[in-house]
């Protein structure tokens, strides 16, 4: 449980720091691409962050909305890959 929270916190912190966004604008279920929190370059930098932070390599076929649309989804994706 603690690990799960840490993963989510790290992902949230990364998104907030990289976008200079206000914490109240980005909830765990916010659709980060639909809402314009991250753009296409933001997605690429996020993939790099997942690799550096969690040693997760993302493949072409994993680039689907179910894995990346929100902090909750990204967290679940990371947990499944670890």
């Amino acid at each position: 449980m603690q690990i799960k929270i840490n993963i989510k916190d790290k992902i949230r912190d990364y998104i907030l720091q990289s976008t200079f966004d206000d914490v109240k604008n980005v909830m765990d279920e916010t659709l980060i691409f639909e809402e314009g929190v991250l753009d296409s370059m933001g997605l690429l930098f996020l993939i790099e962050f997942l690799k550096e932070e969690f040693n997760i390599t993302t493949n072409d076929e994993e680039l689907v909305v179910e894995n990346f649309q929100s902090i909750n989804n990204i967290t679940a994706f990371v947990e499944n890959k670890m």
Binding site: D39, S40, L43, I47, E48, L63
Partner: peptide
């Protein structure tokens, strides 16, 4: 797709073999 696009690099060898990988940002 509802995600922004990400680029892959594709290399084609002289024998026709195709190798393709998602491109890291750098």
């Amino acid at each position: 797709s509802n995600l922004p696009p990400a680029f892959s690099v594709t290399v084609i060898k002289p024998n026709g073999e195709i190798i393709s990988k998602l491109l890291p940002v750098k």
